[in-house]
Design a protein around this nucleic acid. Structure first.
Lengths: 330, 330
DNA sequence: GCAGACTTGGAAACCGCTTTCCTGGGAGGT
DNA sequence: ACCTCCCAGGAAAGCGGTTTCCAAGTCTGC
């Protein structure tokens, strides 16, 4: 492996000069020497050792993103947004997937801390378990004590900058919109009770119905993914409208109904949450609450990188988008 | 930031001993000292500086994966497979997205080289441009000269271990299967001519039709993504069957037909390639050529990590899966 | 033509950890 | 008891850069 010393030797200059030429320094270097160094580096095919640079500089140009599942379009969109933002800052991205295991998440933060990454993004719902949250807070605090920066997309439970989708409000607005269409008997495919995102959306929906004086919906818990939606939909009773707390679950529900010959929206209306980009290719087009996922990912990165001595929590409003999957009840 | 020296001092031992206790060493350390060190590390919240470790050890535990677009289910599946495999090896993953820009790909390989990552995975189709391929080969050669390991999912054009989907054969088999159903007039939504994957699939399809004595299909070029498929489908002439060279394009084509009121498969049959997991939720279910994407990603990682003095090229066969989106012509 | 302010190049300390090499002491053999 | 061998622990030399601190020029202004 070619080192800076090799380059310096070949160019006949000191290590310091070679370093100044090749890796951005404030110091000037004479044109002649500069050219010699650059030529030597080129001839030798020199590539700076970033580990050494990180060590010497005490700061790395890597950020870490922790998501639950990259194959879920929701996380893919958030991660993509964050990664594009990172790329414009010249930062590299280390991605970890937890597959919804809090221990993995914790381990990843510890590892990213060890890597001395510039910032850590925690993307995805928090869990309701205070013990888990506490451990994660501790780990993040440790990381931040060492100068690390962190941000979260989800709930403001970690004491770091947070991009927080307005899950309750979004779900409540959706409930009102659906009630406006004349629906009265609802089921909520609610996901796991301990996932805060799922719980908030469910609660917002339920409360809004209550305020409207409508009967309480049937609440069906299950996994937060496509198959969870599929399974939950199969358990729904005699309702006119089903609210899946996220789009991939709603897509699963659509599949379940399709297989059983239940027509959407004629026999039952279906709504989701998130407005993942792939929705446009599903039939019928899914009613949902739109979240600007890419922007949220990018924004989280900005927050993490920014000053933020006071912790910033940004609410992101969701916008109800009515599409074919719900019908008006006459 | 807590350093190993702090821990050693607090425990009253030497740096060497602390290092041996905390970061796996072959050397034994007495139980008493070991306990003291561990306690000190715990109290101080010590996290090893991986940059320093990497530098000292001369080997990192990070691998790099370069994909074109994470939000595309094809790449997401491949990346996920590779990441899961990496996780079982205790490796961290650095993900780069090129958005199909060869320069980005090149730059990413250079950066990963600079990071001295253990292995680099290049996921996605090569381009036909020999100049581009040459530069990438050079960069990879440089990386490998420094002890790096590399593998590719795509075409065997880089001189590294490769997992190569049998695009021609898969497309040819698909063509024969569709011809068996009685189709004779085809269009191929062929993607960009310079993308080898797209070109191979198109060529395999075209050749198979020729062998069968069928008329040459209409070949429509365009982008390799969902919108490319949408646009291309809109240009297709009077054919009974459309082959999109990948599934996301086929999904776009389905959308185009749906919007225009063209019924699939009644009015036109549609087939794709890859069998991305999200297909199960599209209507009508899409005929395609199945590729074991997750396995391919995992296998590529294995190859990269393995010995592989002779370069390994593994063909992966595709399996034709007939679904509702094609119909039998009477 | 000369003092003083700038600029440019180099020597060397340092970043935090690993690992070689050395030392002292205890175990085992006779 | 004595000698050898082995082993735990520590000192110190890197790993490959960055950056501070000096020294030696180079300009500028009078």
């Amino acid at each position: 492996m070619v080192t800076l010393e090799d380059v310096a030797k070949q160019a006949g200059v000191s290590l310091a000069t070679a370093s100044r030429v090749l890796n951005g320094s404030t110091r000037q270097v004479g044109a002649a020497l500069r050219a010699r160094v650059e030529q030597a580096a080129d001839e030798l095919g020199y590539r700076a050792n970033i580990a050494a640079q990180t060590l010497a500089r005490g700061a790395s140009n890597v950020i870490g993103i922790v998501v639950h599942d990259l194959t879920d379009p929701y996380f893919a969109a958030l991660a993509d947004g964050a990664m594009r933002a990172a790329a414009t800052e010249g930062l590299l991205v280390m991605v970890g997937t937890t597959h919804r295991d809090p221990e993995q998440e914790l381990a990843y933060v510890a590892t990213l801390n060890a890597q001395r990454v510039r910032a850590v993004l925690l993307v995805g719902s928090r869990v309701a378990d205070p013990a888990v949250t506490g451990l994660l807070r501790d780990e993040l605090a440790r990381y931040q004590a060492g100068g690390g920066r962190a941000a979260c997309v989800g709930q403001d439970l970690l004491g770091v900058d947070t991009v927080a989708p307005a899950n309750r409000q979004g779900a409540a607005e959706l409930a009102r919109a659906l009630a406006d269409l004349g629906h009265t008997r609802f089921a909520v495919l609610a996901g796991p009770p301990h996932l805060v995102t799922a719980a908030d959306r469910c609660a917002g929906f339920v409360e809004a119905l209550e305020e409207l004086g409508l009967p309480a919906p049937q609440v069906i818990h299950g996994p937060f993914d496509r198959d969870g939606g599929y399974a939950a939909a199969s358990q729904a009773g005699d309702v006119t409208c089903v609210f899946a707390v996220n789009d991939v679950m709603a897509v699963g529900a659509l599949a379940a109904y399709r297989e059983r010959g239940v027509r959407v929206p004629d026999d039952v209306s279906v709504a989701g949450f998130d407005d993942i980009v792939t929705l446009r290719d599903h039939v019928p087009a899914l009613t949902t609450v739109r979240l600007p996922l890419k922007d949220m990912g990018a924004r989280a990165l900005e927050l993490a990188l920014g000053e933020g001595d006071p912790v910033v929590v940004e609410q992101v409003a969701g916008e109800v988008v009515l599409r074919e999957s719900v019908r008006r009840m006459t």
